[in-house]
Write a protein that binds this DNA or RNA. Structure first.
Lengths: 331, 331
DNA sequence: TTGTAAGCGTTATCAA
DNA sequence: TTGATAACGCTTACAA
């Protein structure tokens, strides 16, 4: 910057203004400086800028897994908003471990980000403290929480589970099975499952513990879940496969076995992805507004940031973006 | 840090050492300082650290689209390696636009990252200059390039296309169709398509331009592609659907139409994802080592970084990680 | 093993 | 509209 200033015959401060507040610079000076900047291909150093201004352009995102296509929509929503505001996204995965999440939060806070987004609402004690003390705007997402650390943008997994129970009951099914990814350490799935059980119980139906399964990720494990649940109870009428693409895997397995869906067995999924619409038959599912969640999360952080520049009266927020049962051919 | 130093009765420099070179500190002092750090919940400021050391812990990644599940594997590979080395990943999507890529490169360079990974081998003139002048280690990936800006880790899309042609020819097919996402601005797909045509041509077969289609993303568009190509030539024998999940969409459409695969029509895909293995029949495809590519890309940047600390004799590298034709039921 | 001094490359602040 | 000056919170280099 000094070099640019020297060549343009102005002070470094003027160069700085050309870059970050061009409207404060006389048009001729502006153009003069800009031409030098282009000529020497000057690339400003934001590290220095951030230190001086005590403000970075980094937003941190921690998700349970990068591989899981679920998060892609949310990430795109976040990214779209941040990019419009000149902010940058750091992403890491916690591998579903709260300890790793804590370590990541700590590492991210060292970077003095202008915001943090967590796809998670349960954290270690230490992690909560870190976040609270830091004063960094923080959005929790992935599940509705009554006690957000700062802000939350989500939907109720419990209500979604209950709504799916109501849907299946309304179709006349009475014997159920349930499968999901491992519940431990995943409050989103736990809530969805418990909501489902609540809904059945309200209709006087108790699900057999043997008909509740945890399986690994992937289509293949959806197939396994179907096979195993049918083996355990050949008269089961409806399955709720909560999580990722398990339901699609089950449908594909039905195709392979020549089972009619929903004639022989009804199958419902969650997390509407395009696969759900394209199977034969298309799968009844519960859809969460993932892109919108990314967008709102990012917007909250951006607005927090802009607030800070004017009036620093921080306000917490919890937004419930809802969900939607999408009835299709499989139930 | 000053505050911690004061409370611990040492100089700030000792606190700094406790954090970044603990082996240089006397054990008692170390413990003493660490206990103060915990007590006051001191979170070091890496922005300041980076400015002083002229070294950040940020690696930038630019991919064409965040939504595309293709990149998830590569990202996970990168992330796994970086996390082990205490580095952080910034991710943005260029939306398949070279101009946006250039803008992102420029923005990333301002952050003085310790490396950049581009899922792309064609760039604007300005972008190449920026990268070359910056001296920031840069890995290009996604396609084999003869002229890497710095380093490259990839596979040959052209060879992959040719290999798929050979595979289909060896199965006895002679009338072909091809569909992919839009080719323009996507050198990876162009190469794959051209390689496919090369392979056919070598066997004396020229593909009818009417049987070459570009469609949008998603399963649904795979279905459309199948419908359209069969409409244009009812006697077509084999389709190569290159890109994303188009082939799976086509297979699902065949299921809906009651077409036998490969009896009525053979279908081959690319980018082996789990969907390809689970359809009925499973889809013949070409598999790229996406996770490995992420791993190697990150490793090259890490090793460059460590080199720099010792001997600064930078060396360029192009690594070809190959691909694999996976013959399955659909051809 | 620890400390001192001098930056790192910007921006905030105030004065001109 | 522009400039001088003093930070920002660390690390490097060297000295003790």
């Amino acid at each position: 910057m000094k070099e640019v200033a020297r060549l343009a015959g102005v002070s470094p401060m003027t160069v700085s203004r050309v870059l970050s507040a061009p409207h404060l610079v006389k048009p001729e000076t502006l153009e003069q400086v800009q031409s030098i900047i282009r000529a020497v291909r000057y690339v400003p150093n934001r590290v220095a800028g951030s230190l001086a201004s005590r403000r970075t352009s980094l937003v941190g995102l921690i998700i349970p897994s990068l591989r899981n296509a679920l998060y892609a929509e949310t990430i795109q929503g976040i990214s779209d908003v941040l990019q419009r505001h000149g902010l940058h996204l750091m992403i890491s995965d916690s591998g579903y471990s709260l300890e790793r999440e804590e370590a990541l939060i700590s590492a991210y806070l060292s970077q003095r980000p202008c915001g943090l987004i967590l796809h998670n609402t349960t954290h270690t004690e230490a992690a909560r403290h870190l976040l609270q003390d830091s004063g960094v705007p923080c959005v929790e997402t992935g599940n509705l929480t009554t006690q957000p650390i700062d802000m939350a943008v989500s939907y109720s997994n419990r209500e979604a589970g209950r709504a799916m129970a109501d849907h299946l009951l309304s179709r006349g099914y009475r014997r159920f099975g349930f499968a999901s990814l491992p519940i431990s350490g995943n409050e989103r799935l736990r809530e969805r499952r418990d909501g489902f059980f609540d809904g059945l119980r309200a209709a006087g139906i108790e699900i057999d513990p043997a008909m509740v399964l945890e399986v690994g990720e992937g289509l293949e494990n959806g197939s396994h879940a179907l096979a195993e649940l049918m083996r355990r109870d050949a008269s089961v009428q409806a399955l709720f496969l909560a999580g990722d693409v398990l339901a699609a895997g089950a449908i594909l397995e039905c195709t392979r076995r020549g089972l009619r869906v929903p004639g022989d067995i009804a199958i419902a999924g969650s997390d509407d992805n395009e696969l759900m619409q394209q199977t034969v038959p298309p799968i009844t599912t519960v859809r969460f507004p993932r892109y919108r969640i990314g967008v709102r999360s990012a917007e909250l952080i951006v607005s927090r940031q802009e607030e800070e520049r004017s009036q620093p009266d921080t306000q917490s927020a919890t937004e419930d973006l809802g969900f939607e049962i999408v009835p299709r051919g499989s139930t």
